[in-house]
Design a protein around this nucleic acid. Sequence first.
DNA 1: GTTCCGGGTAAGTGTACACTCACTTTCGGC
DNA 2: GCCGAAAGTGAGTGTACACTTACCCGGAAC
Lengths: 198, 198
Amino acid sequence: MRRLPAAERREQLLDTAARLFAERGYAGATTAELAKAAGVTEPIIYRHFASKRDLFIALIDRTGAETIRLWEQHIADAKEPAERLRRLIGVNPMVSPKGRGVYRIIVQAMMEIHDEKILAALDRHIAALHKFLCGEVVRAQESGQVSNRFSPEITSWLLIHLGLGYGVLAPLGMPGHARDTTGMHVRDVVEQLMLGVK
Amino acid sequence: MRRLPAAERREQLLDTAARLFAERGYAGATTAELAKAAGVTEPIIYRHFASKRDLFIALIDRTGAETIRLWEQHIADAKEPAERLRRLIGVNPMVSPKGRGVYRIIVQAMMEIHDEKILAALDRHIAALHKFLCGEVVRAQESGQVSNRFSPEITSWLLIHLGLGYGVLAPLGMPGHARDTTGMHVRDVVEQLMLGVK
DNA sequence: GTTCCGGGTAAGTGTACACTCACTTTCGGC
DNA sequence: GCCGAAAGTGAGTGTACACTTACCCGGAAC
């Protein structure tokens, strides 16, 4: 077996666990499967994490932080506030093909909130996400380029609901999901509503 | 033990299972707990359902149908199309305090889509829900009383995403969720957007 | 080459789970 | 009251699961 230094192995365990937890959820992904996916045996998981639950919570924290980081990265070099907001909506990692596979861990975790530590981890993430989005909406509204019809807070809740709702439904793979017969996508609608008439 | 006729017992099993599955999810609610909640022992579950999975799927079907029926009921006697749409948004059983506790079964089921029968049941529900909402949006738009800026299909997807997103997040119980400091609620925003300027 | 630290495995453990089976009890019809 | 059908129980089963333990081994430093 190819050995890895502890930090590398821990990261690899998180990476492989991310995929399995996203697809199967917390209970559905067994420690045997998690170990196999990482190419190790089960005791190695416990070398790095006190329990399966701790691994899951570490992943919630990591995924939450990574989602916001990705989002910030995608909008970083937009010149105009309106463009920046357009990108905020258009490349949302909660729902983008690239990001939502991993973000589903957060969605799966939403089903485990009877566990107080998981609930706490989710609270942290949603609070950080709401704060981030608020900051962006404030910025855009203050520039005068986009509608300030609704407050940044309420707008951010809307964006979060839309992101979560889309993320819940997209994996069903329903034909025509989130589109209409003209090819318009909900993203376009959200963009128009957010950038709306002042 | 007080005996119930088969049809009554089946209904009672579905009722009690609804609460447990909504709270704990499919894997989290054990057959022992389901039986206890119904005041019977485990073999009785198997008298009425071939498996735990079949019970769960029966609940998805029932919950989906009931949600739409409740929705229809709430809007049935609205006089004006605009009022009807306002009610459609305002008393959405996906998110209302009364309905969302049970609707969480649908949300929980969204996490079990690796099971093809559960996936199929969800497909049926979402397709029916989308169809129902489209019908209502068409009706409202044709009356000329509400905006037809966006198609009924795309509008319905938006409403579904918002409902699911809210339903996922509400059980976290975060202070200030879905509101802003003025007390405005996302429901008000959705209403204004849907009834928007023509 | 040797030693030692830390990464890794094979085998196992006790408990929980979905489900079954043999038997009991209830209740309505006669 | 008796009988039979159907509803119900107690005890159990085999398997899966999260986690542990004793031991092994790779690789870097000397």
